Simulated scan of single mutants.
Amino acid sequence: MSTVQEAGIRDWDFPRGVASIALMTGFAREHGVGAGRILQGSGVSERGLGDPDAQVDAQAELAVIRNLVRELGDRPNLGLEVGRRYRITTFGIFGFACVSSPTLGEAIAFALRYLELSFTFCIPVARWKPGEFVARIHDERVPGDVRRFLVERDVTAMFGMLNDLLGHRLDLVRAEFDFPAPPDAGLYDEIYGLRPEFERPHNLFGLDPAVLERPLPQANEHTWAMCLAQCRELVSRRRARTGIAAEVRELLVPRGGADGFAAPPGIDSVARDLNVSTRTLRRHLDAAGTGYRQLLDEVRRALAEEMLTATPLSVSDVAIRLGYAEASTFIHAFKRWTGTTPSTYRRALLTPPAR
């Protein structure tokens, strides 16, 4: 029997900060390529790289990546070289939240839920099974001209983050890639501590699951709670929906807001209200990088957080108002969204900080 945890997003086309672009621009400069050539066509200025609050769409970073591969693609294992430059501090508040997590397993679970605060183009899915933890790295939607670079970069960056969290290099059980082996795989050995297998069906790496229970050296419950709150706020701002997704969200919000008391409409009902077929609606939502279930979760989560903090309703009453038949189902969903139970979430927000 195995347990699977998917990322909170399904696609790489999400807004992101400029730290990753700044890192790649710096790498290129070290190898004789000026910022102007690397930033060409991205819409990002060299001056803008110093703005910690700047936000760009994924296409901007993709343009920089294509420029980097064009200029330096003759370097063997370019993706590995760039990927090892990403450190936990590169990821800002997202990285600090991971560092202050209680255990490595909880840090990984958090990172998957809030993956859109990273810079990845490859989407990991975690699977726990007897004797092994496996992270499969999905690259199916990554453009083919930069796919190998991005698999190398993103997997190496992920592995580097895990090492930073533990304070030492993690021992991998295995690593596999779906592309051919390079002429010299020595850098793979150096970074991963083992020789990966190449031309395998999937990109993945495996760990001993016992390592997931290890307390992190910089774990801090108070810092973790603050970082989680800031990450939730940042994600909420970035997830502002427009177009068809906004229309679906509007139909999913109960009339009367959090006080509404009716099961949410199914996707067929939503499609009828929008005068499209269910199949067409699914296609439009998929093109927008989301889906009916994801939007329903977003609405339910927002309403749940509102009711837990602004009303005296019991957890069971909140579950009923959100359309759940049983409180246990709601509790499971809420823990998947936030990493904690509704009761713990309410206590954490309503309990005054200790002086």
Rank of each mutant, 00 (worst) to 15 (best):
R169S: 05
S269C: 09
R321S: 04
A271T: 08
V125A: 13
R169A: 01
S20H: 15
T329A: 08
G8D: 13
E326F: 07
Y188K: 02
A225R: 13
D273Y: 05
A327S: 09
V173Q: 11
T223Q: 12
D208Y: 02
G160N: 14
F334V: 11
D13W: 15
L187W: 07
E61V: 02
D164W: 08
W337T: 02
T280A: 14
L112I: 13
P183Y: 04
G41S: 09
E197D: 10
S118M: 12
H31N: 15
D286Q: 13
A262F: 07
P217I: 10
Y324D: 01
G289K: 03
R279T: 12
Y292S: 12
Y345T: 00
R301Q: 08
L313V: 00
Y292I: 12
V155H: 02
G243S: 13
L115P: 05
F96I: 00
A319F: 02
A262R: 14
N67E: 04
R174V: 00
R301L: 11
K129L: 11
D189I: 05
A35Q: 13
Y324F: 15
L228S: 07
R16H: 11
F179I: 00
G43Y: 10
L204Q: 13
S236R: 15
T329M: 06
E326M: 01
P254I: 02
N163Q: 08
A302N: 13
A107R: 09
D13K: 11
P130V: 02
E46D: 14
R127P: 00
F94E: 08
R239T: 05
R153V: 11
Y86H: 14
T280M: 13
D13A: 12
L162G: 01
L281M: 02
L295D: 10
A58D: 14
S328A: 02
D53T: 12
F261M: 03
W12S: 01
V235M: 09
F149S: 03
E140L: 08
Q218Y: 14
A229G: 10
L274C: 03
D178C: 06
L80H: 02
A325S: 04
L72W: 11
E233M: 05
A325E: 12
M1H: 15
P143V: 00
L322A: 04
S101C: 13
R355Q: 05
R237T: 08
G48T: 14
A229D: 15
V248D: 13
E298Y: 05
G95N: 02
G32W: 09
P196I: 00
A7W: 08
P215V: 14
G131N: 07
L281F: 05
A175S: 06
A219E: 04
L207T: 01
R300A: 09
V253F: 03
